[in-house]
Deep mutational scan, measured.
Amino acid sequence: GSMEQGFLPKGWEVRHAPNGRPFFIDHNTKTTTWEDPRLKIPA
C-alpha cells in the first residue's frame, strides 16, 4: 500500500507482479529489481 511506498528511496516505486510478488522500479536509472532497495546498505 501507500505506507510502504513512503519508505522507499527517492525515485523508487513498488509494484506487484501478476503473481503478487512485489518488485521495485528505480525511475532514476529506469530499471527494475526484485531486491528491496531498503535492504541494501549504502556504501
Rank of each mutant, 00 (worst) to 15 (best):
M3C: 09
I41W: 14
W12P: 00
D36P: 07
K30A: 14
H16N: 08
R21E: 09
F23M: 08
H16D: 07
P18S: 10
F7Q: 15
P22N: 05
P18A: 12
L39I: 11
E4M: 12
K40H: 15
F7D: 15
P18K: 09
N19K: 01
Q5M: 14
W12Y: 04
P22M: 07
P42W: 07
W12E: 03
V14Y: 02
I41C: 15
T32K: 10
T32V: 15
A17G: 09
N28Q: 06
T29A: 05
T32Y: 14
G11Q: 02
M3L: 14
F24R: 00
P42L: 09
H27V: 08
F7H: 15
P18W: 09
E4Y: 11
R38G: 06
K30V: 05
P18L: 08
L39H: 13
H27R: 04
N19P: 02
G20I: 01
E13K: 00
T33Q: 08
N28T: 08
T32H: 07
G6F: 10
E4F: 12
T29F: 04
I25V: 10
L8Q: 01
D36K: 01
T32Q: 12
G11F: 02
E35A: 08
L8W: 03
E13F: 01
P9Y: 05
P22K: 08
I25G: 02
W34V: 04
D26R: 00
A17K: 06
T31F: 08
R15E: 06
S2F: 13
I41V: 14
K10P: 15
P18E: 10
A17M: 12
G11C: 15
P18Y: 08
E13R: 00
T31V: 08
N19L: 01
T29W: 02
E13H: 01
D36A: 02
T33I: 06
K30H: 15
P42H: 11
H27L: 08
T32M: 15
S2D: 12
I41D: 14
P9V: 05
Q5P: 11
S2C: 10
M3W: 10
I25S: 04
D26N: 10
H27A: 03
D36R: 01
R15K: 11
D26C: 08
T32D: 03
Q5N: 13
K30S: 10
P42N: 12
V14C: 14
G1M: 13
K10W: 10
V14T: 04
P37Q: 02
G20W: 00
R15I: 11
F7G: 15
P42V: 12
P37L: 01
E4I: 14
T33N: 02
R38P: 04
N28C: 12
T31D: 04
R38C: 07
G1A: 12
E35Y: 09
L39E: 11
D26G: 00
G6Q: 10
R38L: 03
A17T: 14
P37E: 03
F24G: 00
N19Q: 03
H16R: 12
R21K: 11
G1R: 03
W34N: 04
F7I: 13
G11T: 00
G1D: 13
L8Y: 04
I41E: 14
E35N: 09
R15S: 08
T29K: 06
R21G: 04
E35R: 09
L39D: 12
Q5G: 13
E35S: 07
S2N: 12
K10V: 13
T32P: 03
K30W: 06
W12T: 02
F23I: 09
D36V: 00
K40A: 15
V14F: 03
M3D: 14
F24L: 03
R21W: 05
M3K: 13
D36I: 01
F24P: 03
P18I: 08
S2I: 13
P42F: 10
K40I: 14
K40T: 14
R38Q: 04
E13P: 00
I25H: 04
E35D: 13
F7Y: 12
M3H: 11
D26E: 03
N19T: 05
G11V: 00
R15V: 10
H27F: 07
N28Y: 06
P9C: 07
H27P: 05
T29D: 03
W12H: 02
E4W: 14
Q5D: 13
T29Q: 06
V14M: 15
P37K: 01
E13S: 05
I41F: 12
K40E: 11
T32L: 15
P42S: 10
G11E: 03
H27I: 07
P42Q: 12
G6D: 12
P9I: 05
E35V: 10
I41R: 12
T31K: 07
